[in-house]
Design a protein around this nucleic acid. Structure first.
Length: 749
DNA sequence: AGCACGCCGACT
DNA sequence: GTCGGCGTGCTC
C-alpha cells in the first residue's frame, strides 16, 4: 500500500447533477495510460472507471513540497483492479471528450453509455475468467480453421487469397449498374470531406455500401468499418446480406452486431470483438457510433435523416453528428446516405458554410454530395395521385376514411393479384371516445392525452403512460348510454376494408387483409412472421403504421395509400414537414419495387390540401425543390440550420414548479452580477432565452413537464454560454422538481 | 445515481 | 422486540 505513489485520474458513471466532480483521483503502484479500464471504490460500491488524464510522472512523492497536496494524495483510495483489456485509444477518448462537452454531459456518462453494461457489472475475477475463456475459444477456432499459421488480421495465406478471389467472383455475379460503378469511383476518391450519398429508394444504395465496405476492408488487413442503421429489428434482410457477404470474404466472426436488443452477454462479446480488432465490420444502431474500433476506416450512416439517431434519453447525442466528428479524429471516411436527407445535412452538402460553424465537418466545412437518382432495374417511382377529400361526400366515405375511388383501386389490385399498403399513423380503433350528451371524453387521468379505444380487446389505453381501463358502458359523467368514437385508427381501417371487400366481392372474396402495428407485432418473432406472410404473398391488403414503411422490400405492392397525411401538415413543430415528406417518400418507395409491376405502381394521398407545395414536390419526386423551400423558410425565420438551439426541459410535481425552475435558471443568466459570461457581449448579444412554456405533451404519468428554448446564431456562443451555465444549474434547488435535462440540437421543440 | 445511516409504524 | 418505510447526505 505504501508504494501506491502514483496519482491516477479516473472518470466514473457519475451523473452530471450529482455533487461529485467529473474526474476523481486514486492511488496506484504504477502509472496507467489514458484509456485504461479500472475498477475503483466509490463509497460502499466498486465501479468501473476509465483512466482519464495521464498523470505524466506526477506521484504522491512529487507532491511532498506542497504538504496540502501530499496529505490529500495519501488520503486517496487505491485502485481496486486494472482490467486485462487493452486501453481505449486516444482517438476514442477524444470522441468521448468532444461528445461530453458538446452535449453538456460528464465524460463518465458518455463513457458508460459506450461500454457494454456487462463490463460494468463483472468484478475483476469474473472478468478475467471470462476473458481467458474467450481467448481459448478463439485460439481453438483459429487452429481448427487454418492449419497454416495465420495470425489474426493478416489472412494473406494462399488459401485465404484463393478463398477471397472465389468470393469476389461470386459477389461480382451481382452486376453493378453504370450509376453504381460511377458512384463507387467517386467514393474512392481521396477527399476527406463527409459524403452525402443522395440516392432514391430502390436505387441500390445497399449494394454500394457493401462494395465500399469490401473495398476499404480489403485495402488494409486491419481496417474496420462501421455501418449504422436506424432500427436493426426492422431490417433483418440488410443484416443477413452484410453478414453473408462480408463473412464470406473476411472470415467467420468478421461481422458483429451492436444494438440494445441484444443480451448483455452478446453485447459484451461484440464489444470485445470490435475493441480487439477481430471484428472488421460493426453493424448497429445509434449506440454503435460509440463502439471502440481501433482501426476504424469507414463509417456509413444509412437513412441519415432518421430521428432515431438522436438519443432521446440519457446523454442525448446525435449518432449521425458524432459519426461526422469521429471520422475527423479517426481519419475515416464517413458516408451519410438518404433519399430524403435531413435539412441540416442537405444544407451542409449544398451550401458552403464557414468551417467553424459546422459540427465536426472536415476542414472545408462542406459535405461532398454524390447522387444516385435512378431506381435500379429501371423500375419507375410510383405515380403520386392526390385525392381531394374536399370533393368527397362524407356519407360515401368507407368507414369514414376511405374514398370510393381508392377502394376501387384496391379491388383492382386484388383482382390482378397485386398487393396494396394502407398507411395510417394511428394505432387502435379510435383515438378517443366521447359522450353524445355531455362534454365527457376518454381523457387519461394521468396524462394530457386521450385514452385510445382498442376494440379487439375492448380496452381503453393511454399510449403515453400505458394505463389500461375497461370501456365504460355508459358515460361516467352523465350516465348517458350513447357513447361514440371519434377519429379512426388502424384497427378500424382494417375492419372497414374487410367489410367493404366482403360486401363488394361477396362470395368471390378471398382477399386477405393484414394489420401490422405495434399492437399486432407485440411478442417475440411476431413482426417477422407478419412480414414474412406479406413477402410470401399471403396478404392482399396490408394496413399499418409507419412501422411498415421502413426499408422492407415488398416485391408485389403496387399501391400505397396515405389515409390521413394532413395532420402533420400544419403542426407547430418546424421539422414536421420534413418528417412528413420523408415518411411519404419512404412509403412511396414500398410500391413498385419489382420491375414487372412498377409501371402501374401508384401512391395515393387522401388530402384536404391537394395544392400544398409539399404534396406537389412529392408528386414530382423532387426532394431538392422541397429542401430548398424549407431552407428558405428556415432562413427567413432564423431557424436551424441558420441558428443553433438547446432545450432545457424540466419535470416536476406541478407545472408551476417546473416553470419556476426554468424561470430561476433564466434569471440566473440575466443577472450579470452572478453569471459572469453574460457580461461578454460575444455571448449575451448572440444568445436568446425564450420564456418557459409547458411541453407539447404537458403531463405524462402525472408528471408535469415544461421547457425553455435557448437559441443563438452562433454555435460557439451557445456552447460557451451552456458550459458556463452548467455549474450554476447544478447548484439550483427548487422545490418539487423531479429532474431537469439539457438537450443540445433538439429534434422537436 | 446508489447506498448508507437514521428514526418512526405494523408484524413474526 | 425487529423488519422496513423512504427522508437526508456522502461518495476521490
Amino acid at each position: 500500500v505504501t508504494d501506491s505513489r502514483f496519482v491516477i485520474q479516473v472518470v466514473l458513471p457519475t451523473p452530471a447533477h450529482s455533487r461529485l466532480p467529473e474526474v476523481l483521483s486514486y492511488r496506484h503502484t504504477q502509472a496507467l495510460p489514458l484509456g485504461t479500464l479500472v475498477r475503483v471504490p466509490l463509497g460502499a460500491r466498486e465501479l468501473l472507471g476509465l483512466v482519464w488524464r495521464a498523470p505524466a510522472g506526477i506521484t504522491a512523492a512529487d507532491c511532498d513540497a506542497d504538504s496540502d497536496v501530499a496529505s490529500a494524495a495519501l488520503d486517496l483510495k487505491p485502485i481496486a483492479a486494472v482490467l486485462d483489456v487493452a486501453p481505449l485509444t486516444v482517438a476514442w477518448c477524444k470522441l468521448m471528450a468532444f461528445a461530453a462537452s458538446y452535449y453538456q454531459r460528464y465524460v463518465g456518462e458518455l463513457v458508460m453509455a459506450a461500454l457494454p453494461p456487462q463490463l460494468r457489472e463483472l468484478d475483476a475475477v469474473q472478468m478475467n475468467r471470462m476473458l481467458t475463456k474467450r481467448h481459448k475459444k478463439r485460439q481453438k477456432s483459429e487452429a481448427d480453421a487454418a492449419p497454416a499459421p495465420a495470425t489474426a488480421g493478416s489472412d494473406a495465406t494462399p488459401r485465404a487469397l484463393a478463398h477471397r478471389s472465389e468470393q469476389t467472383q461470386a459477389a461480382s455475379l451481382v452486376r453493378l449498374s453504370s450509376e453504381q460503378t460511377l458512384v463507387l469511383a467517386e467514393l474512392a476518391k481521396p477527399d476527406s470531406r463527409p459524403i452525402l450519398l443522395f440516392g432514391a429508394t430502390g436505387s441500390g444504395k445497399t449494394e454500394v455500401y457493401l462494395r465500399r465496405v469490401e473495398a476499404v476492408l480489403a485495402s488494409n488487413s486491419a481496417a474496420q468499418a462501421l455501418v449504422l442503421v436506424p432500427e436493426i429489428n426492422l431490417t433483418p434482410q440488410l443484416e443477413a446480406r452484410f453478414q453473408a457477404r462480408i463473412e464470406a470474404q473476411f472470415g467467420a466472426g468478421s461481422v458483429v452486431l451492436m444494438h440494445s436488443g441484444m443480451t448483455p452477454a452478446q453485447r459484451l462479446a461484440s464489444w470485445l470483438s470490435a475493441h480487439s480488432g477481430e471484428a472488421r465490420l460493426v453493424l448497429g444502431t445509434r449506440l454503435a457510433v460509440l463502439a471502440s474500433m481501433p482501426h476504424l476506416a469507414l463509417m456509413i450512416v444509412d437513412e441519415e435523416h432518421d430521428p432515431s439517431y438522436k438519443s432521446q434519453d440519457g446523454s442525448r447525442y446525435s449518432a449521425r453528428d458524432l459519426a461526422v466528428y469521429r471520422a475527423g479524429v479517426d481519419g475515416a471516411q464517413v458516408i451519410l446516405g438518404s433519399a430524403t436527407p435531413s435539412i441540416e445535412t442537405w444544407h451542409n452538402a449544398a451550401v458552403p458554410v464557414s468551417s467553424a460553424e459546422a459540427i465536426g465537418a472536415a476542414k472545408s466545412g462542406r459535405y461532398r454530395r454524390v447522387d444516385m437518382p435512378t431506381r435500379i432495374s429501371s423500375a419507375a417511382m410510383p405515380k403520386v395521385r392526390l385525392l381531394d377529400m374536399r370533393l368527397q361526400k362524407k356519407a360515401s366515405l368507407l368507414g369514414g376514411s376511405i374514398a370510393p375511388a381508392l377502394l376501387e383501386a384496391i379491388e383492382q389490385r386484388i383482382v390482378r393479384g397485386e398487393q396494396s399498403l394502407l398507411f395510417l399513423n394511428r394505432r387502435g380503433y379510435a383515438p378517443v371516445l366521447h359522450c353524445s350528451a355531455c362534454e365527457w371524453k376518454s381523457d387519461c387521468p394521468h396524462c394530457s392525452a386521450h385514452q385510445v379505444f382498442h376494440k379487439l380487446d375492448r380496452r381503453l389505453r393511454c399510449h403515453h403512460c400505458s394505463l389500461v381501463s375497461p370501456v365504460p358502458r355508459q358515460c361516467p359523467l352523465c350516465g348517458n348510454l350513447d357513447i361514440g368514437t371519434q377519429g379512426r385508427g388502424t384497427e378500424q381501417l382494417e375492419e372497414s376494408i374487410v367489410q367493404a371487400l366482403e360486401r363488394n366481392l361477396g362470395g368471390a372474396n378471398t382477399a386477405r387483409v393484414l394489420r401490422i402495428d405495434a399492437d399486432s407485432a407485440k411478442g417475440k418473432g411476431r413482426l417477422e412472421a407478419q412480414l414474412a406472410s406479406v413477402h410470401a404473398g399471403d396478404v392482399d391488403v396490408l394496413v399499418g403504421t409507419q412501422m411498415v414503411t421502413k426499408g422492407h422490400d415488398f416485391r408485389r405492392i403496387t399501391l400505397v395509400a396515405a389515409i390521413n397525411p394532413d395532420s402533420a401538415l400544419f403542426a407547430a413543430d418546424f421539422r414536421a414537414p420534413e418528417r412528413l415528406f420523408s415518411l411519404l417518400m419512404q412509403a412511396a418507395g414500398r410500391a413498385g419495387r419489382d420491375v414487372a409491376v412498377s409501371a402501374q405502381a401508384e401512391m395515393w394521398l387522401q388530402t384536404h390540401h391537394p395544392t400544398h407545395p409539399l404534396f406537389k414536390a412529392l408528386q414530382n419526386h423532387d426532394y431538392p425543390a422541397f429542401a430548398q423551400s424549407q431552407l428558405a423558410e428556415r432562413q427567413g425565420a432564423m431557424m436551424p440550420p441558420f441558428s443553433y438551439q438547446a432545450l432545457m426541459r424540466c419535470e416536476a410535481k406541478t407545472q408551476e414548479a417546473a416553470q419556476a425552475f426554468l424561470d430561476h435558471a433564466a434569471a440566473l443568466v440575466h443577472s450579470e452580477a452572478v453569471f459572469e459570461p453574460w457580461r461578454d457581449p460575444q455571448i449575451s448579444g448572440f444568445v436568446t432565452l425564450y420564456p418557459a412554456v409547458p411541453m407539447p405533451m404537458q403531463r405524462v404519468a402525472n408528471i408535469e413537464r415544461a421547457q425553455m428554448l435557448v437559441e443563438s446564431a452562433s454555435r460557439a456562443a451557445l456552447q460557451k454560454m451552456l458550459a458556463a451555465w452548467q455549474p450554476y444549474l447544478r447548484e439550483l434547488k427548487v422545490a418539487s422538481i423531479y429532474r431537469w435535462a439539457l438537450d443540445v440540437d433538439p429534434l422537436s421543440i
